[in-house]
Design a protein around this nucleic acid. Structure first.
Length: 445
RNA sequence: CGGGGAGUAGCGCAGUCUGGUAGCGCACCUGCUUUGGGAGCAGGGGGCCGGAGGUUCGAAUCCUCUCUCCCCGACCA
């Protein structure tokens, strides 16, 4: 993509409404534009990131055995009356009436809808287990939306629902999602720690929040440093091996990891040696939750069991805040100049900066780089604009593409270009061909 | 929902107290000069001053009502 043709309305000054880094940087980098409180349009740069995050979530859901579907944003009030939540939900639910005076709502979540679908179609225990998910826009009419996409009213969420015949089955599903989440966040370059979460009136210990560590996070978190060192991506995970999954989960759940709401200083200090105590801040990006028959019972989601008797299905739900993740990743990875995208979610793999468009040698070198990287399957942003170098460097820092290839008249007369990582780990003056070899084979994360 | 603040050009702001034909910086357009970290000079375009009523010869400015947005708190993927 040539930057001269790309719709990238960057801002030099910060819009005054943006307080936190991710909000500020997303606005400045031309990723989003606010429509009304807590509701945003996603401009091309932001949309690219959103799609990449969504795709990682999708791949890891599929890998864990969940199946993608799509449910509507608008739901009938009726099914929420069946579950008893229509009145419980309160003013956070956006209620709508259509021309026939039918009561509708813009879905804040989909337990009722999926349960209703499942109840109407599942017959036998042989239909179980199942895990179904979708990635869809939701709406919660927050009293006070803030922090940009981190706490919007409209947000993109992946929600998955599991259906099992009994508690043991539900735990297996829960474990699959738990491990899937570990992999999902790790692939995005995040340290996400599962922390014990409130299970509300249902009780039990089967709920975890996944917290991304970021110094600007909203809640204080306390955990054993050993949590930070577990590398889930290097393992070959077999989702059919219940024992292996349980073992991975045990490694986390036996370690102390809690948010401030559940933090217990005495327990922390007795369970975690002093040098292993980690205290920081974090952002919740996902939650896994077992809730048994809370919805299946009132909505009649039953199957005939092996014994010929009807059995109410055991359910769980598993959410990931996809749009929130965009903000969370920026909170976890930025500096004063701008965003530092992890490779796996970056809007482009590399940016080529032509310091002197119109200079024959620079143009030729840039076009060679652009063509070669494109042929190697890289997504490249080519800054061919007729701007001064300072403007280009500043925009490049701001939008945070992981690799930067700077081609200017000074270097090119010696056949040299500058190859840099946005995160500062690489800054080399090398021959163009060497830089291209390196970029063409660099991991995409 | 309680408390605070703000709506004036795309963005950041001044002007409001003390009414008198709307301004600054950046951005944008044209030309020339520049070109390795947000260039210089010259010229130019762009505003029903959030909206509705009112007071006045005259309202961005005073009065009334209203809408929106932001911050702190309570609440949340």
């Amino acid at each position: 993509m040539r930057l001269s043709r790309f719709y990238l309305p960057t801002l030099k000054e910060t819009p005054k409404e943006a307080e936190i880094a991710s909000h500020r940087l997303m606005l400045r980098a031309g990723m989003i534009r606010q429509s009304s409180a807590g509701i945003y349009s996603w401009l091309p740069l932001g949309f690219r990131v959103l799609r990449r995050i969504e795709q990682i979530v999708r791949e890891e859901q599929d890998r864990a055995g969940a199946q993608e579907m799509l449910m509507p944003t608008i739901q009938p009030a009726e099914i929420w009356r069946e579950s008893g939540r229509y009145d419980d939900y309160g003013p956070e639910m956006l209620r709508i009436t259509d021309r026939h005076e039918r009561e509708l709502l813009y879905g804040p979540t989909n337990e009722e809808m999926i349960t209703e679908i499942f109840a109407a179609t599942a017959r036998s225990y042989r239909d179980l287990p199942k895990m179904l998910y979708h990635i869809q826009w939701k709406f919660r009419d927050e009293v006070r939306p803030r922090f940009g996409v981190m706490r919007g009213r409209e947000f993109l969420m992946k929600d998955c629902y599991s259906f099992d015949l009994d508690y043991e089955g539900a735990v297996r599903s829960y474990n699959k999602m738990f491990v899937s989440y570990l992999r999902t966040f790790a692939r995005m370059g995040l340290k996400a720690i599962p922390m014990e979460a409130d299970t509300g009136p249902i009780g039990g210990d089967l709920s975890h929040e996944f917290i991304v560590l970021a110094p600007t996070g909203e809640s204080a978190v306390f955990c054993d440093r050993n949590c930070l060192d577990i590398d889930v991506l290097s393992e070959d995970i077999d989702y059919g091996d219940d024992g292996a999954l349980a073992a991975i989960i045990n490694r986390f759940t036996t370690l102390y990891a809690r948010t401030e709401e559940k933090h217990d200083t005495a327990a922390f200090e007795s369970r975690v040696a002093k040098d292993r105590r980690y205290e920081g801040r974090g952002i919740e990006v996902g939650q896994v939750f077992y809730f048994g028959t809370k919805y299946s019972k009132p909505m009649g989601a039953e199957v005939i069991g092996p014994d010929g008797q009807p059995a109410t299905v055991e359910m769980g739900s598993y959410g990931i805040g996809v749009s929130r993740l965009v903000g969370a990743i920026i909170e976890a990875s930025h500096d004063d100049a701008g965003i530092i995208w992890p490779d796996a979610v970056a809007p482009f793999d590399a940016e080529i900066i032509n310091l002197r468009p119109g200079d024959e040698a620079c143009d030729a070198a840039c076009m060679e780089a652009y063509a070669r990287l494109g042929a190697a399957g890289r997504d490249v942003l080519y800054d061919d604009r007729d701007e001064r170098p300072g403007v280009k460097f500043a925009d490049a820092d701001l939008i945070g593409i992981p690799w930067r290839l700077v081609i200017g008249p000074r270097g090119i007369k010696d056949g040299k270009v500058e190859l840099k990582r946005r995160d500062g780990t690489v800054a080399d003056e090398v021959a163009l061909s060497a830089a291209l070899d390196r970029l063409a084979t660099a991991p995409r994360g």
